[in-house]
Amino acid sequence: MQYTYLLVNFFTIIIPFLFSFHPRLKFHKTWCAFFPAVFLTGLVFVLWDMLFTKMGVWGFNDRYLTGIEIGNLPLEEVLFFFCIPYACVFTFHCLDLFMNEIGGSKMQKIITLFLVAFLLIFGTIHFSKSYTATTFFSFALLLLYAQFILKINWLTRFYVIYAVLLIPFFFVNGILTGSWIEEQVVWYNPEEFMNFRIGTIPVEDAFYGAELILMNLLIYKYLLNRKKAVAAANLKTTAL
Rank of each mutant, 00 (worst) to 15 (best):
M1C: 09
L6K: 03
L7H: 08
L7F: 11
V8H: 02
F10R: 01
F11N: 02
T12E: 02
T12M: 04
I13Q: 03
I13M: 09
P16Y: 05
L18E: 00
F19G: 09
S20P: 01
S20V: 05
R24K: 13
K26L: 15
F27N: 06
F27H: 04
A33L: 02
A33P: 00
F34Q: 01
A37Q: 08
V38N: 06
F39E: 11
L40M: 14
T41D: 04
G42M: 02
L47G: 04
L47S: 07
M50P: 01
M50G: 10
F52L: 13
F52Y: 08
G56N: 07
W58T: 08
F60R: 01
N61C: 10
N61H: 05
T66G: 13
G67I: 05
I68N: 14
I70D: 07
G71D: 07
N72R: 06
L73I: 00
E77G: 00
E77A: 02
L79H: 03
C83Y: 03
Y86T: 04
Y86P: 00
H93P: 00
C94V: 12
F98D: 10
I102M: 13
M107V: 12
I111R: 04
L113K: 03
F114A: 15
L115E: 03
V116D: 09
F122W: 13
G123S: 08
I125Y: 11
H126N: 11
K129C: 01
A133T: 11
T134S: 13
F137W: 14
L143F: 03
L143I: 04
A146M: 06
F148N: 10
L150K: 15
I161C: 04
V164M: 15
L165T: 08
F169A: 08
F170G: 11
I175F: 04
T177G: 07
G178L: 08
W180T: 14
I181F: 07
Q184W: 07
V186G: 00
V186I: 13
N189P: 07
E191Q: 13
N195F: 09
F196V: 11
F196W: 15
G199A: 11
T200W: 10
I201E: 03
D205A: 04
F207G: 02
E211Y: 09
M215R: 10
L217M: 06
Y222E: 10
L223R: 01
K227T: 13
K228H: 12
A229E: 15
A231H: 10
A231Y: 02
N234T: 07
L235I: 05
L235E: 15
